[in-house]
Design a binder for these strands. Structure first.
Length: 666
RNA sequence: GCCGGAUUAGCACAGUGGUAGUGCAGCGGUUUUGUAAACCGAAGGUCGGGGGUUCGAAUCCCUCAUCCGGCACCA
């Protein structure tokens, strides 16, 4: 006698079906349209294969392309699977390892045959073609549960070392499944998958790049060869994605920085930025803006040494943990003879500062501090050097010399909530001034850490409560906790900005630290007359000026708001008869505090318009004989579809001066 | 640091073993111009550094450096 199961559908209706019925059967029972559209099923919330038999009473929801997040996850996982099969078909001897879906596609990591070596981009077209063949063949993807012994046997026999290792180490209780795609090709996989490869759109994926990747993400393991692809439900989505990539490339701060003459990087100082006059205007505007902000928020600005004795870094703990990323300097006159080592074995060492916090503690420790001095907020535009791994360097985003908007707040435990609240409000105002939305996340204790669990319980709870009390731990602010992501000495609150094209950047942070005040023996005298340990809140809003400027350039696509634009206006002449008038207009704008250049070159106005538009100059002031006679300029705004407007110079100055005010002074 | 790719004039790029090229910029000249590239001319390079193979190397090999895409790292 067949056992009957009670299946509840999303509309609340119930059906009785025989045990072993599949979601596909149920979809077919509802209607042929749904049967065709159904990609997978959610069974009691769990995403499952459409053809996996039902074993128990359950709530069932059929997943179609309309459930976009689920559908994308499924197809991307399938593309990865098809990629693996294609690669093994084309390159016998390649071992398969692991291939998940990603945010915009998928990848698969391979151990290539020794004679072939890692894959290169040249291999991709052939692999793509093979994938389309596999999709066209509409191979079924059949789920089977295997015993661990059978799996290990199969992988070992086939020389699949990595799969065998994986099968060996999967947790005891886990059900081990494989997916066959017809023939004799199979992959060990948790699933779920679509019913067959033919459900994929052969025109909705593209292999994008190759790279190396460590087996199981560990630097100590073998280097595998990874193939990345982007995958979507249909061609239209793929095209839209490729367009987004082009848009991001168009905004690349390295390209715009070159075109706008903001900065350059060169081999002799790789990882450190040469700021050109135009780029440094942006820096100076941000610096002035941030100074006003911290002055108003009760911080005191300081400046601390660039180089300190290694013993200081030993005491702070950086020498032991981060020495390999520090620039170390011998405290000794170098040997100037041709022979012999540059410095003696007995050299004493100093180091460029990789961060500002120890120096700020040293300032705190000068003189006796009273509880009345707290909270003490020390701010520095702190220039730091870190000897980053070469492969990590990237334009302005990851550099070896950078300047942080860094501050340390020394306070008592009972002041943390107020300080975190004030910081949340300050960060909120600043990010909004640049047109960013953001999410606040709490990065919790990492595996490797200093301090007891009790201390971490306390520190995490403090930050969590402080943000909640400040009213920022809500969905509106993207509140989320990230296990394992904290610094080794403290949990971190992180501000993740979303830019104009939806990318996110982790920028601001505040961290509560009890370790460093302890190590450097900072104390204050309390109301009770006893010495107490202050808590130190590390915090930054821009993060680093370099990186923040890079983010701004990409966010605004180079079209900086007037207050940040290096050149706010160019006065361009049509005929040389207007030269004197143009100089006069420029002088009046300059006198009003605007950044103005003139373009009196012997060129057509078309040429000048094009050039200054490409240089992202916000205002082009065109003057010819007419304007010179009438005392006007023809104003052309960058990116404006409006026709140029003829305005009087006084009106223009009033308008531009008002618009060029920084947002905190508008 | 690891895997792959790249490095040619100020910039963007072509050039796969036989005399280094194109466009733009820069320079000189003509043109005085009305909203996204006027015209003519002359000039500009030890082809990233070093080593090797070869009669001959931008081109093939080795090595170092930097950059790009990832991986790992990011106090």
């Amino acid at each position: 006698m067949t056992e009957l199961l009670k299946i509840t559908l999303p509309d609340g209706s119930q059906r009785e079906v025989a045990r072993g019925t599949t979601p596909a059967d149920i979809a077919a029972g509802i209607g042929p349209g749904l049967a065709k559209a159904a990609l997978a099923a959610r069974v009691d919330g769990e995403l499952r294969d459409i053809n996996r038999p039902l074993e128990t009473d359950a709530a069932l929801a059929l997943v179609t392309a309309k459930d976009e997040a689920d559908a994308l996850e499924l197809v991307r996982h399938d593309y990865a699977h098809v990629l693996a099969e294609a690669v093994q078909a084309l390159f016998p001897g390649t071992q398969i390892t692991f291939g998940p879906a990603t945010d915009d596609g998928f990848y698969y990591d391979f151990a290539p045959a020794a004679e072939h070596g890692p894959f290169t981009e040249e291999d991709l077209p052939a692999i793509e073609a093979k994938m389309r063949e596999i999709i066209a063949a509409d191979k079924p993807l059949v789920r089977e549960v295997w015993s661990r012994a059978d799996l290990i046997k199969r992988w070992s026999e086939q020389g699949e070392r990595f799969k065998a290792e994986w099968a060996q180490e999967l947790p005891e209780h886990e059900e081990l499944t494989v997916y066959w795609s017809g023939g004799d090709w199979l992959d060990m996989c948790r699933g779920p998958h679509l019913a067959s490869t033919g459900k994929l759109d052969p025109q909705a994926f593209k292999l994008t790049r190759v790279s190396g990747a460590y087996w199981r993400g560990d630097q100590k393991n073998a280097m595998l060869s990874r193939i990345y692809g982007t995958g979507w439900l249909n061609r239209k989505q793929l095209d839209a994605h490729l367009t987004r990539l082009e848009e991001a490339a168009r905004r690349d701060h390295r390209k715009l920085g070159q075109e706008m003459n903001l900065f350059h990087l060169q081999q002799e100082a790789h990882g450190s930025v040469f700021w050109h006059p135009k780029g440094y205007v942006i820096w100076r505007q941000l610096e002035a803006y941030m100074r006003r902000a911290i002055d108003n928020a009760g911080y005191r600005e300081v400046k601390t040494p660039q180089v300190m004795d290694a013993r200081q870094w030993e005491q702070s703990g950086h020498w032991g943990k981060y020495r390999e990323n520090m620039f170390v300097i011998p405290d000794e006159v170098p040997n100037t003879e041709d022979e012999g080592p540059l410095v003696s074995d007995a050299a004493e060492w100093m180091a460029l500062k990789p961060m500002n916090c120890p120096a700020h503690i040293l300032i705190f420790k000068q003189g006796i501090k009273s509880y009345r001095d707290l909270p003490l907020r020390l701010y520095e535009n702190g220039c730091c050097h870190r000897n980053e791994p070469h492969g990590a360097l990237h334009g302005l985003m990851r550099v070896r010399q950078f300047t942080q908007d860094d501050a340390h707040i020394f306070c008592r435990e009972d002041q943390i909530v107020d300080e975190v609240r004030a910081f949340c409000q300050l960060a909120d105002r600043i990010y909004k001034d640049f047109g960013f939305t953001y999410a606040i996340k709490l990065a919790l204790r990492p595996e490797k850490r200093f301090g007891s669990d009790e201390l971490w319980d306390l520190a995490e709870a403090e930050l969590r409560d402080a943000v909640a009390k400040a009213g920022f731990a809500t969905e509106q602010y993207g509140w989320e906790e990230l296990p394992g992501e904290g610094a080794f000495y403290a949990p971190k609150l992180e501000w993740h900005l979303t830019d104009a094209i939806g990318r996110t950047w982790q920028v601001g942070t505040i961290q509560s630290d009890r370790v460093l005040p302890e190590r450097l023996d900072a104390s204050y005298v309390g109301e009770d007359g006893e010495r107490h340990r202050p808590i130190m809140l590390h915090r930054a809003i821009f993060g680093s000026y370099e990186r923040f400027i890079g983010i701004l350039v990409e966010h605004y696509a180079g079209k900086l708001p007037l207050w940040l634009a290096p050149v706010q206006a160019v006065v361009a002449t049509i005929v040389s008869d207007a030269d004197d008038y143009a100089k006069d207009v420029a002088a009046r704008l300059t006198a009003a505090g605007l950044r103005v250049e003139t373009d009196l070159r012997n060129e057509k106005i078309n040429y000048k318009v094009r050039e200054h538009s490409l240089a992202k100059v916000p205002c082009l002031l065109v003057v010819g004989r007419r304007e010179a006679e009438e005392g006007t300029v023809a104003l052309r705004r960058l990116g404006s579809d409006e026709h140029q407007k003829v305005v009087g110079v006084d009106d223009l100055i009033a308008q531009l001066v008002a618009e060029a005010a920084p947002p905190d002074r508008a």
